[in-house]
């Protein structure tokens, strides 16, 4: 009787510990799972103004809303240790939702050797991010610069007419990061 109780208690312990370890491992995994979950949330909510640096999947024609004008501001930032000059060609544009527009960012390698960099986009207000469609953008790829090369980098974009009507100004910001594996 005593022995049977003991065995079942030992077995109960083992079962319980196994389950608890399973929870532990699952929660460790959940920590990592928060990465894709967060990305999805960012896409949906425009959290942090992420536009993901991704191209719009299908470029479907849209009705152009001539009656509405939205101001798009262009901003350039350099991350620390990114030895470029980097600036938008124009500081802002007046655009109609639904219509394509093109502009340029200018960048110049300030060093005497080749550099690799990547621009990371961010849109304010965050809720406008999902309505800001980049059709062509230098931010989709890493950019290789020859020594002291100066280059114009195009952005083709369109504002989705579904942009909430109370948004009148959208800021598109790029931060240029140097990639460490430059030249590699």
């Amino acid at each position: 009787m005593e022995i049977r109780e003991a065995v079942s208690a030992g077995a109960a312990n083992r079962r319980l510990v196994k389950r608890l370890l399973l929870i532990t491992v699952a929660m460790f995994g959940f920590g990592f799972a928060m990465v894709p979950i967060y990305d999805v949330l960012c896409q949906i909510t425009g959290l942090n103004g992420k536009t993901g640096g991704r191209q719009v999947a299908a470029v479907l024609p849209m009705a152009v809303d001539e009656a509405r004008t939205v101001t798009v501001e262009f901003v350039a930032n350099l991350n620390v240790g990114a030895p470029w000059e980097f600036a938008p060609q124009v500081s802002h544009m007046q655009v109609h939702p639904g219509q394509y527009y093109q502009t340029h960012y200018l960048a110049r390698n300030l060093t005497g050797h080749a550099l690799v960099g990547q621009a990371i986009p961010s849109v304010a207000p965050g809720l406008a991010a999902q309505h800001f469609q980049k059709i062509e953008c230098f931010c989709f790829n890493r950019q290789v610069f020859q020594p002291e090369e100066r280059r114009e980098m195009p952005v083709v974009f369109r504002i989705d007419p579904n942009l909430p009507s109370d948004v009148h100004t959208i800021t598109l910001s790029y931060t240029f990061f140097r990639l460490d594996d430059a030249g590699g």
Partner: peptide, 22 residues
């Protein structure tokens, strides 16, 4: 503790790989 200490472990592991493993 069981629910959140592993999450901290995950977070600092990601810090580690960000710093050393690209």
């Amino acid at each position: 503790l069981i629910a959140v200490m592993p999450v901290l472990a995950g977070a600092v592991t990601m810090l580690l790989t960000d710093k050393y493993f690209g």
